[in-house]
């Protein structure tokens, strides 16, 4: 996984609540193998006509076509668990989404792929939107180590993040390696668990 430390980049405002993962990555693109093709998948049906030509959409125009940050609204990424929504964001170049709340699974999927989900208060997100409206294409800076977002006008907002999520993102750490360190605990767990639930012996696959 790619580490996330800090970025400063163009922020695209998507001031809309309940943007579901189906908007971010329409279902039919789920089957695409992960790769650069996903850049075009991001908000595909909002950005492109059926014949493939571009629609009018913020993310199709300069400088938002090279945005690294999305300033969203509430309940960003609700709905389907599809991780392809994160692939689409990531391949497009997005490294951080700022919202007042996230769909649970989507926030996890982001963090597992080096994309930082930042939760700010309603007032703070609104202020970012106001600043981006006044200065379209302005840049925002996000620093994970200090847990801070610097608005275009220099105001700094602090955000909370779980310490483990922070560490994994900062170092680009992967969960599987982390889990392997708990082999002893797992053995102790099973000594007890398997004895207590003898009926759970898995049937062989057939």
């Amino acid at each position: 996984m790619q580490a996330f430390t800090q970025i400063k980049g163009v922020a695209a405002p998507i001031h809309e609540p309940n943007v579901d993962t189906n908007q971010i990555c329409p279902t039919r693109f789920n089957k695409v193998s992960r790769g650069p093709e996903y850049a075009r998948v991001l908000f595909h049906d909002r950005r492109f006509n059926l014949d493939g030509s571009e629609k009018e959409h913020l993310l199709n125009i300069d400088p938002y076509n090279r945005a690294q940050i999305i300033v969203a609204d509430r309940n960003w990424g609700c709905g389907s668990s599809r991780e392809s929504a994160v692939y689409a964001l990531y391949e497009f170049g997005i490294r951080c989404v700022i919202a007042t709340s996230f769909g649970d699974i989507h926030a996890n999927n982001c963090a597992k792929n080096g994309l930082l989900p930042v939760i700010l208060s309603e007032a703070e997100v609104l202020e970012l939107h106001q600043q981006l409206a006044l200065k379209p294409g302005a840049e925002i800076a996000v620093d994970l180590a200090t847990q801070s977002v610097t608005a275009p006008n220099g105001r700094v907002f602090q955000f909370d993040i779980h310490p483990v999520r922070k560490l994994c993102l900062l170092k680009g750490l992967d969960d599987i390696a982390r889990t392997e360190q708990y082999a002893d605990a797992a053995q102790a767990f099973h000594a007890h668990y398997d004895r207590e639930r003898p009926w759970l012996k898995p049937l062989s696959a057939h």
Binding site: V86, I105, N108, I176
Partner: peptide, 15 residues
């Protein structure tokens, strides 16, 4: 429900 990376972890570790 979990995403693909979390499912990979479940498959690899059953945890």
């Amino acid at each position: 429900g979990v995403g693909a990376s979390e499912m990979t972890h479940v498959m690899a570790t059953q945890k």
